[in-house]
Design a protein around this nucleic acid. Structure first.
Lengths: 283, 283
DNA sequence: CATTTTCTGAAACAAGAGTTTCATAGACAT
DNA sequence: ATGTCTATGAAACTCTTGTTTCAGAAAATG
């Protein structure tokens, strides 16, 4: 569960103008900054004008920046003293040190899994465990992680397939799916048209869809009636980090295994044995 | 250790006037309030006038209330050393809960990067940055992560290639490498013969070799004169987690980018532009 | 290409925060 | 009681923040 501000942003993200999105993005990545900083500072951080900032908050349905701040404060008081690991500032020299890296990764992991609702995770696992076949998709940089997830799932249940990296052939590949199948899409920002297309397709064919994504896109995915697993991926510099995405994949696979139970374990052992035999050259 | 503000208050508490003490007390009780509230609000909370608040901060040795706020913010950002996170015991019921997962991942990440020596990381980055061509290898489940690393590195420098997943063809592929090239192998346990073979080969051809692996194998890799990046991957149950491996890949790529400097940034921007154009269908 | 619409930051403006001044209330000594 | 000194808040003042307006830039549309 995120803050109310975050929810509003996710709902209206597409309607926002580009500079508003820049600022909104920042607020999603670092919600605590609302409490500590003035609107002027937020604008400066993200390189937009004060005017744009004022407009954004109005467009999100607040009267005032003050409204926003008050709401944020109220929410902070309500949620217990969760020891959030703060995201470091952008270092001026832009050099990534090992401790900074660790802190960034920890912050993202912590936020990701403290926000993750177990019922959502279980729903996703249920869909995957109960599906006839499972399809895993990941474009571009996410492709490697998608393959990783596929292998994890293959260890646990049969019938897990990758959808090719070439988005052009997705229609053909997806054509053979049925309503008893499940589709897992790994897609952090930027959100491409292909993804939107596939999600629409999945909804019309009643394919169970699980989307692993970042807060910028949860709204879009949810509107397509997908189960959304939200991962924090931001860093103080401009790159993203996929660590929490991989970790989410790991957890998802483990949860599916739990759900399936004994059969999953048997299958894992079988695979381990096979791997060992191949390695030792007995075959 | 408390905040610097708290220390100053404690030092001078007796010298403060009664109303100043009231306010100071409040700040000691709720140090985070400094970040979220204005001086006027703090005064109102404690039933003291704005003037008293201004005087208090001056008496504590600050120029300004703004000084106080800036210091508090700065202290929040560079939070102290990350506390050592204990690895959970094997849960008897073997069910992976979300909090347990988070704790396991945090523990592995923390151990991985607190042990990582910056000079080793830099050496690895140097080898990759300075190499003629770079080869990335990852077998089985690590293959996805290897692909991920390859893409990260491709964003930063040209000439980064995957070695195919089929280990049988490695001899041919490696035959075209020269002593100016670098080889990155991602190989956590189990350690296969192929890996040992390739490492031996790499040493004889004086290929610069970086091995990303887990503590079980560091010794073996080091004996082949490879640069070893050690990742903790264990979990209380029998599976491994590759999260820290991915995180290491991320850090490695970032470090290479730093090392290469401006050219890396230029290349990244170029790629980002291209990606955008492809997405928008302009090509 | 022209026209309309949308987006955006600079600048003007209004509101509020923080500091300083100042008058006064209270404490204490004489 | 008188004078002195400290503590305090009201109010004046200054500076910053947040909003609104407006004109130009950019994008979309015909």
């Amino acid at each position: 569960m995120g803050t109310r501000l975050a929810l509003r942003i996710q709902e209206r993200y597409e309607e926002l103008t580009p500079s508003e999105q820049k600022l909104a993005q920042f607020l999603l990545d670092r919600p605590d900054e609302i409490l500590a900083s003035s609107a002027t500072e937020l604008a400066r951080f993200t390189g937009v004008s004060k005017a744009t900032a004022a407009r954004l908050f109005r467009n999100l349905g607040y009267n005032d920046f003050n409204d926003v701040r008050l709401q944020a404060r109220e929410e902070r008081n309500r949620t217990g003293p969760v020891q959030q690991i703060p995201m470091p500032q952008a270092a001026v020299d832009e050099v990534v040190t090992v401790p900074t890296h660790l802190q960034v990764e920890s912050a993202n992991l912590t936020r990701t899994f403290e926000e993750l609702r177990p019922d959502v995770l279980n729903a996703a696992a249920e869909q995957i465990g109960g599906a006839g076949r499972v399809w895993v998709a990941g474009l571009g940089i996410e492709n490697g992680i998608a393959r990783y997830l596929r292998i994890l799932l293959t260890r646990v249940r049969p019938g897990v397939h990758m959808i090719s990296e070439n988005a052009a052939t997705w229609p053909e590949e997806l054509a053979s799916t049925g309503p008893n199948d499940a589709l897992i899409i790994i897609a952090v920002r930027p959100w491409t048209k292909q993804i939107a297309t596939v999600l629409t397709f999945a909804r019309t064919t009643r394919l169970k869809t699980i989307v692993i994504t970042d807060p910028t896109n949860t709204g879009k995915a949810r509107r397509k009636e997908a189960t959304v697993l939200n991962c924090h991926v931001s860093t103080p510099w401009s790159e993203l980090t996929q660590t929490s995405v991989l970790s989410m994949a790991q957890l998802l696979a483990a949860t599916v295994a739990n759900r399936i139970g004994g059969r999953a374990k048997a299958r894992r052992d079988l695979i381990a044995d096979l791997a060992e035999e191949i390695e030792s050259g007995d075959i």
